[in-house]
Design a protein around this nucleic acid. Sequence first.
RNA 1: GCACCCGUAGCGCAGCUGGAUAGCGUAUCAGACUCCGACUCUGAAGGUCGUGGGUUCAAGUCCCACCGGGUGUACCA
Length: 568
Amino acid sequence: MLWHERIADIIKNAYFKAFNQEAPEETLQMIEQPPDSSLGDFAFPCFRLAKTLHNAPNKIAEKLNEAIGENNMVTTETKGAYLNFFVNRKAFANSVIDEVISSKGSYGSSKEGEGKTCCIDFSSINIAKRFHIGHISSTLIGAALSRLYAFKGWNVVRINHLGDWGTQFGKMIAAYKLWGSKEMVEEGGVQALSDLYVRFHEESEKDNSLDDLGREWFKKIEDGDEEALSIFEYFKELTLKDAKKVYDRLGIEFDSYAGESFYNDKMQPVIDELQEKGLLVESDGAWVVDLSDENMPPCLILKSDGATLYATRDLAAALYRKKTYDFSKCLYVVAYEQDLHFRQLFAVLKKMGYDWVDEQMEHVSFGMVGYEGEALSTRRGNVIYLDDLLQKSVEKALEILEEKNPNIEDKQLVAKQVGIGALIFTMLQNNRIKDIDFWWDRALNFDGETGPYVQYTYARCSSVIEKGSHIDAAPDYSALCDDITMEVLKALYRFPMAVSDALFRNEPYLITRCVTDIAKAYNRYYYEQRILTDDYSASAARLLLSRATKEVIQTGLSLLGIETPEKM
RNA sequence: GCACCCGUAGCGCAGCUGGAUAGCGUAUCAGACUCCGACUCUGAAGGUCGUGGGUUCAAGUCCCACCGGGUGUACCA
């Protein structure tokens, strides 16, 4: 039983005894953890009760305290309006460790999502463009969320909504036909495609007949011309092959690559439906859904030349996903630049009568990535490609390993785990909404609260557990009752709540920070408390704590997509 | 112009959805290994929480105005 619940029960009983009425519904939610452990392990603030009980908050706290009396699980004391609880440390240690060890790596998981489906639209790379750091947030946040939902029992559909539609692909084909060749692209990969595109732009400044050629080729794609399609498919294959390398290194897979082109033939029904429901109005030759009652600009559905737009496609995609997956939740992990677009999208769906939108659809927006104080820009060279970044981070990790632990086995593998782990950790350390200014020296800094710090703690646990493997005495939990050990136990205790909060708020950083807290508490403990001693019963208990720490760190990091080497 | 987001220590950020003395990391300074891994640990210093009002027993947190920064604002995605 959770200690929160246990304490809520104690309060409820005391409340009834003291005031002869039921305690408020939200008693459980009112329980807090004090800012300082010396105040208590849990606290119940009584301010809010003053009104209903017509009594001063500190008097209420005192009365509850009297009503509780003696209890073998907690001792209580009042401090002003707070009723503070000190847990029975031995019982607390025992229950936290049991809980972790008995769940066998699934500590913090649950089945609350069972039978429900969550679609997560993330990463969403563009065809014929290299994977750069502009896509890293969506990719890592989306991947972490997909693991989190799965951990909570959800059926997760990971969708890579490819940017694979638009006139630029007509231009690409034109450029390819003019100056490119299979050999050249085979050798240069996606970079060669980007170069072709850049060249097309340059040349079309001088020769504007090229733009017509581009449009012609795009028209051919639209009309299903065999040659155009086969070249286009080839570009797509090439891009995905490149991206796959990055995804593999990050341990990410997708269930669907249905991108923009996929919805090409699925928009007409949506347009018809908008028409039938009387939502489509003409405006300056274009067809829009008016959203002035929502204080938003109109949502453009059809251009004046009859062509569809981004919003049209997203409407079709949303309805398709609902029909195909019957989701209970549909997340869009997209930068905040598109806040308005999603607000419009959701508003239009609601006008169409889809009331599930409010509860089920969410734009999980995040801050933008810049490079050393400037905006990302391919033209100015302010671009970092993801494969380069991963490579550099792994190299840095390898350098440090060579220096600190040159004789380690699987050095290359460990360097990869540490280097990539460091990167993921940094990216998932803060609130999504914060902009990220990318600096090489910051990205490659492994000191302080970083991925390697937590991984190091994990390796430390492994090491001491191995050293103590000969101990088979029955654990004596009274060895886990001092203040410093309690901080480790409390950090472990908080983990399931961090997981729940992270899911509720769609914020992976809550996991990152919880795992960091655990590592910090354990490192301090490790320094202050000798784990392996002559007292085998005490050692056995301390080893169990180490094992619990190790397992929770592993669970937490794996949710983020970070691996845990046994040695580093 | 309008809409949305952000503003907390030099820098990078938390702050449990309104509660106890505002924290963490970095950088700076001072310390700690004959000892389970020094990629560790302890301590010091660093703040009118952008500004001014308001609501409340209680405001970094809620409301209003202003200042500063970012993003968006119909035929791109």
